[in-house]
Simulated scan of single mutants.
Amino acid sequence: MPEPYIRVALPGDEEQLSLLDRLTWSALHAVTPQPRPPHAPFFSDRHGPQDCLVAELDGRVVGYVNLGRPTPLASNAHVRQIQGLAVHEDARGRGVGRALVRAAAEEARRRGARRLTLRVLAHNTPARRLYESEGFAVEGVLPGEFLVAGEYVDDVFMGRPL
């Protein structure tokens, strides 16, 4: 089985990434409404192509991870945060998510970060298992932080040193 190829996103990836966002949307992980066509731009002031790592299998975009700063404060500049991760259903179970998490850690380290954090919904067991297996630990829980599909869901804060 080929390894996923991970690279920094290009502006020309926007349409594929927007489609991937729509295809992978789920109440298991999303706290925003389901995206509908016509799609909104994938890149924004918050996440440009330089903040997104893309996974390819067989020359096809099958996943991404957005890496950002949790705050604009200089005192927090040593921390990077995973601010979105998606893997196409056809590519699940092929190591794409793990490769993206590892690449995000490497890129955060390259950018001078000493810590990597993320937030994940408590009921997203597959993602939590992946993050834990990659060295993330639960550092806090915000009980009932989000109302998703009619149910209150805890927001779990996880982090790890780099």
Results as ranks from 00 to 15, higher is better:
residue 2 P to E: 09
residue 3 E to S: 14
residue 4 P to K: 02
residue 5 Y to A: 10
residue 5 Y to S: 09
residue 6 I to W: 02
residue 7 R to S: 09
residue 7 R to C: 06
residue 8 V to I: 11
residue 8 V to P: 08
residue 10 L to T: 12
residue 11 P to E: 05
residue 12 G to F: 00
residue 12 G to D: 07
residue 13 D to I: 02
residue 14 E to A: 11
residue 16 Q to Y: 01
residue 17 L to C: 09
residue 19 L to R: 15
residue 22 R to G: 11
residue 22 R to E: 12
residue 24 T to Q: 03
residue 24 T to V: 06
residue 26 S to V: 09
residue 26 S to N: 14
residue 26 S to D: 10
residue 27 A to M: 00
residue 29 H to R: 04
residue 31 V to N: 03
residue 32 T to C: 02
residue 33 P to Q: 05
residue 34 Q to Y: 00
residue 37 P to V: 08
residue 38 P to M: 07
residue 38 P to N: 07
residue 38 P to K: 12
residue 40 A to G: 12
residue 40 A to W: 06
residue 44 S to H: 07
residue 45 D to V: 04
residue 46 R to N: 07
residue 46 R to I: 11
residue 47 H to E: 00
residue 48 G to D: 04
residue 48 G to S: 05
residue 48 G to V: 09
residue 48 G to H: 00
residue 49 P to Y: 04
residue 50 Q to F: 00
residue 50 Q to I: 02
residue 51 D to A: 13
residue 52 C to E: 01
residue 52 C to S: 10
residue 55 A to Y: 01
residue 59 G to R: 11
residue 64 Y to R: 08
residue 64 Y to V: 01
residue 65 V to H: 03
residue 67 L to E: 02
residue 67 L to R: 05
residue 69 R to H: 10
residue 69 R to A: 06
residue 75 S to N: 04
residue 76 N to K: 15
residue 77 A to C: 10
residue 78 H to K: 06
residue 79 V to I: 15
residue 81 Q to P: 00
residue 82 I to T: 05
residue 83 Q to E: 14
residue 88 H to F: 00
residue 90 D to T: 15
residue 92 R to N: 13
residue 95 G to D: 10
residue 96 V to S: 09
residue 97 G to P: 04
residue 97 G to T: 02
residue 100 L to P: 09
residue 101 V to S: 14
residue 101 V to I: 15
residue 108 A to C: 10
residue 109 R to T: 15
residue 109 R to H: 13
residue 114 R to Y: 01
residue 116 L to T: 11
residue 116 L to W: 02
residue 119 R to N: 12
residue 119 R to Q: 11
residue 120 V to Y: 04
residue 120 V to H: 10
residue 121 L to M: 13
residue 122 A to H: 14
residue 123 H to Q: 14
residue 123 H to C: 05
residue 123 H to Y: 11
residue 124 N to R: 12
residue 126 P to I: 00
residue 126 P to W: 00
residue 127 A to M: 11
residue 129 R to G: 10
residue 129 R to L: 05
residue 131 Y to K: 08
residue 131 Y to S: 10
residue 135 G to R: 12
residue 135 G to D: 13
residue 136 F to N: 13
residue 137 A to W: 06
residue 139 E to I: 07
residue 139 E to C: 09
residue 139 E to A: 12
residue 141 V to F: 00
residue 142 L to H: 15
residue 142 L to D: 13
residue 144 G to M: 04
residue 145 E to R: 15
residue 146 F to N: 12
residue 151 E to K: 15
residue 153 V to W: 02
residue 153 V to T: 13
residue 154 D to M: 06
residue 154 D to T: 14
residue 155 D to A: 15
residue 156 V to W: 00
residue 157 F to P: 04
residue 157 F to M: 12
residue 158 M to V: 07
residue 159 G to D: 08
residue 161 P to S: 13
residue 162 L to M: 05
